[in-house]
Design a protein around this nucleic acid. Structure first.
Lengths: 147, 147
DNA sequence: CTAGCTGCAAAGCGTTTGCACGATG
DNA sequence: CATCGTGCAAACGCTTTGCAGCTAG
């Protein structure tokens, strides 16, 4: 699986070691369908290796984050979510009415990233952004009494 | 100051009470130069009213947030920041190299918000977004060894 | 008068850290 | 074999909650 080979390579090149725990964490991230939380990773890894500790997961995530192999996003409530950084980047529109999650194509943020780069010289990490708001169903009718 | 009158009105209209604590919290938010953390509000309010508790601040912020009088943003590290929602909206570019904060004009996000509304029917709260990345000074030289 | 709000205290939660042992390269 | 990574346990810091008394409307 070349994806994991790539990360293994990146890890090695940056002077990090390849431990069984890290392999499992990588694999968990890689095979996750989208974003996962630290505790989800922990749970999954425990299925094959019950002794792993949460701190190991956090420490590994911190390394992967630094190497830009995973993205981190804070959805504002509770746990931080992590996502394998590869293809198929996208973002989230989170409805604060019904808590629905809408996938936002990466192109929108890519454009924004380009504008920001041009105007500010700032290279934005537009890997995985969460935007809150109201979906069509939850936008209040202007004639109804909102609260 | 009509700004505070407005919030007082909104509070009342929504069936909330106007307590001295809330007045102080409102005032603290209103006069803050940009974003503040809950503990900063707490500290400031304590100057005039030492008995106020953190829980009161959080509870009030939660009400104000619901009424959309303040915005909440999570900069990813430690405390959540709150900002008076009024004029002069802007966003932040946060450099993960030097931790510098760059003001991003609201227009960028306003455009994005419009696109999202058009394409997804999703009304995005683009009140106060934090975008991480690297500022000009911290973008690694492609010829240098990054790590 | 009576909700709703407050201060207090304590719990809750995700995350981080110190430490000594173990494994990697 | 030197170093880095791990599990364990405990701490940490922000935030939330239960509760009884108080107060705004």
């Amino acid at each position: 699986m070349s994806c994991e080979d790539h990360s293994v390579q990146t890890l090695r090149d940056s002077g990090h070691r390849l431990t069984p725990q890290r392999v499992l964490i990588l694999s968990s991230l890689r095979h996750a369908d989208g974003h996962v939380t630290a505790s989800e990773i922990l749970e999954q890894v425990r299925e094959s290796y019950p002794y792993i500790d949460a701190s190991t997961v956090y420490r590994t995530l911190s390394v992967l984050k630094k190497l830009r192999l995973v993205s981190e996003a804070d959805l504002g409530a509770g746990e931080t979510i992590y996502e394998w950084l590869h293809q198929d980047r996208h973002h989230h529109l989170i409805c604060r009415g019904c808590d629905g999650l809408i996938r936002l194509d990466h192109q929108y943020m890519a454009n924004l990233g380009t504008e920001i780069l041009d105007d500010y010289g700032f290279q934005a990490d537009v890997d995985h952004i969460a935007i809150f708001g109201l979906c069509t169903d939850c936008v209040p009718d202007p004639h109804a009494n909102g609260n």
